Amino acid sequence: MPYMGDPTVSIILPTYNRLAYLREAAASVFVQTYDDWEMIIADDGSSEETRAYLRAIADPRVTVLWLSHTGIPSIARNKAIGRARGRYLAFLDSDDQWRPAKLAVQLDALRVSPDCRWSYTAVDLIDADGHPVDRDGLAPWVPYAGDITERLLWIHAHIAIDAVIAERRLVLEAGGFDERQRFGEDYDLYIRLAMRSPVKVVDAPLAVVRAGNGENYSANRIEAYEGWVQLYQKHSATLPGKRLRAIARSRRAENLLILARLYTNAGQSWAALRTLLLGIPGSLLTYPPWAWRAAKEVVRACFKATQRRI
């Protein structure tokens, strides 16, 4: 029997050739105690083995979008959002999972907080083999609620995309995922959601995130920090209020220094110098310690370049 009417929740699941993990992710949806959902799987040009599995899913609540490969999750997510019919959007990556009560608990939390149009939960971490990850050395979990825009800019609020449920209209008002933002696209969206609505937090680990997966999209640190610089550059001009824009500018300056060091360590001294040069106009006045630290990075990059010539 087809599922009648519009569902309450549209689950957005992008995937590309992660069949073993994808099976577990989908299974965690099928066992949800709340069942008024649709799942839109956006396949980013997977191989035949994965496509065969997706074609075999018989649940009428599941729709598969067959996309050409781009390697950009934001594009796949936006395509799925465009097909969604639910009042709420819930996000799940193909290598992660949900606890069975995830949707039920989070929707109940939103119902009792009508001023909040989005929500997130705590998460558990597992490794590539599904074993729990030791949290020693990791930043402690703090359940920030309400207006968390500043907490997001400082990355004090730790939010996994798998932990988020948001009103579909809110996500559309915010513009969806920025497809030009190759890394940090989730935090970019969170900031835009937080500018429009306070957030409700559920202080329970209802999502399970796979850390240390060798295929993880965020494994390339240089590209990751390029993404953070891009994110802070954009929001330094769009955030409301001088304080938030100043935080974004200082965070951009800090991430430029980290990016320059990563370039130097990777043997890309000219890229490091170019990064520091581009950072001068926006960093010297807004972040006074930047000049001294940048000068040290210039010396380091030049020294490394000289060593390679010897």
Rank of each mutant, 00 (worst) to 15 (best):
D44F: 07
L257C: 09
P140F: 00
S46K: 02
T8E: 15
L276F: 02
G282W: 08
V199R: 06
A84P: 12
A291D: 01
F91A: 15
A25M: 05
L170F: 09
V133D: 00
I222H: 00
R308W: 01
A104K: 05
P73S: 11
L244S: 06
D115M: 10
Q32N: 07
C302L: 13
W118A: 06
Y144T: 03
S46R: 02
F177V: 03
P289A: 08
K242C: 04
L92N: 12
G146Y: 00
E48H: 00
R182H: 11
E38G: 02
G282M: 12
S218H: 09
W292F: 09
P198D: 08
F177N: 06
F91E: 09
S283P: 08
T15M: 07
D6W: 06
S113V: 14
N213K: 00
N213T: 04
Y217N: 02
T50L: 04
V199D: 06
R182A: 09
G86L: 14
R61P: 07
A58T: 12
E24K: 12
R61S: 11
Y232A: 06
A204S: 03
Y217D: 10
S119H: 03
G137R: 08
R151V: 10
G227Y: 07
A211L: 10
W66L: 07
E254N: 14
C302G: 08
M1L: 13
K79P: 08
H158R: 10
Y232D: 03
R23K: 14
L65T: 13
R61C: 14
D6K: 15
A128F: 02
S269Q: 15
A84F: 09
G282I: 04
R245E: 04
I165A: 03
P288Y: 11
P140V: 05
L259H: 01
R135D: 04
D136N: 01
L19M: 11
L231Q: 02
W154F: 13
W290R: 05
K296S: 11
Q307W: 07
L107K: 06
M195W: 05
E49F: 03
R135T: 12
I40N: 00
P281R: 10
R252W: 07
I11H: 09
P100Y: 11
V171W: 06
Y120T: 00
W66G: 03
E254S: 15
D108H: 13
L138G: 02
V123S: 09
S119C: 13
F183Y: 12
Y120I: 04
A42R: 03
I72A: 10
A139R: 12
R169E: 13
K200Y: 05
T286Y: 03
I57C: 02
T33E: 04
L125R: 10
A52E: 05
K102C: 15
R85C: 13
L67N: 14
H158I: 12
R51H: 00
D95Q: 05
R135A: 12
S68G: 11
A160N: 06
